[in-house]
Amino acid sequence: MKMKRKFVEKPWGQEVLPDIFGDRSNKKIGEIWFEAPKGITPQLMAKYLFTSEKLSIQVHPNDRQARRIGLPHGKEECWYILDAKPGAVLGLGLKEKVSATKLKTAAILGEIEQLIDWKPVKKGDFYYVPAGTVHAIGADVSVVEIQQNVDVTFRIYDYGRPRELHLDEAMAIAKLSPYDMKFSQEVPVGQSVCLSAGAPFGLFQIVGADEEILAKTASKEWQVIPLEGSVTVRGKLIEAGECGICARLSDIDLSENKKSLVACTMA
């Protein structure tokens, strides 16, 4: 079935979006969410992000840590970079190992940006962000983000914006070390490829009608985000910039697909 798009205005959003999203001039759209019909609670959330400023420096808990505070599971996510202006960066992990006390003090003093590893980013990059990773998305980046569907973010630093910080909670779960680059890759332009295949979710770039890479994956939830062309999910046409959801791989028709992201839950 087709999920409903929700355009979310953010002060750090962009006024000009790709043509597939229509004319949204005079509005700074930061996020595009996909909402399931009433009665369905997806395990995954897919969204588009468009930034004109740096997003907050933050961290998410893993499953065990989230359950301690009454949540069903933690939050891991990944970023598929659609576009990035020259000089754009992502904050992923720390430049070097530090203590929780040093990280917290730097956040309080407004010096934490100097500890973050700001990595240059370009179109076609992919980064998986394990729970506990201190991270931030920089300005002038367009991203498809896939994440576990739970609302839990511990904000460490927000550049003086008037939003709540969660320093003690963040220090208790943050990995106080550099990001492991084994979780990143440059995505081949014209090739179907597995981007993530471990729990809690899998993500695949599918070019054309190439389903072979998906065939060995067992899942009870599939989400399809066409980037070029269109797909059909349970008889509903899903075009570029939209998202479809279904319970079986056989419900997805890729015959008109040019390039899509396919996400699924993993045991």
Rank of each mutant, 00 (worst) to 15 (best):
Y48I: 03
T232A: 05
K104H: 07
L237G: 00
D63P: 01
E239K: 15
L71M: 15
T265Y: 02
K85G: 07
S230K: 15
Y127V: 00
K4R: 13
G229C: 03
S255W: 12
E76F: 08
Q114D: 15
C243S: 09
H135D: 09
D210W: 07
H166L: 13
V8A: 00
L49T: 03
T153V: 08
L227F: 01
A209G: 03
W79R: 02
I20Q: 05
L115V: 06
K102F: 15
E145S: 03
I156G: 04
G208S: 11
G74Y: 11
I32L: 04
I81K: 01
D23S: 13
L109D: 15
E9P: 10
S99K: 10
K102S: 14
W33N: 03
P226R: 12
E145Q: 03
G70R: 10
I238T: 06
L49Y: 01
G244W: 02
E186V: 10
L103N: 09
L254K: 08
V98N: 08
D251M: 11
G198W: 04
K28V: 04
S219N: 08
E242G: 08
G160C: 14
A199Q: 07
Y48M: 02
R161W: 09
V98H: 12
C264F: 14
D23F: 05
F34L: 03
R24C: 03
G91N: 11
I238Q: 07
K54D: 02
L17F: 03
K102P: 07
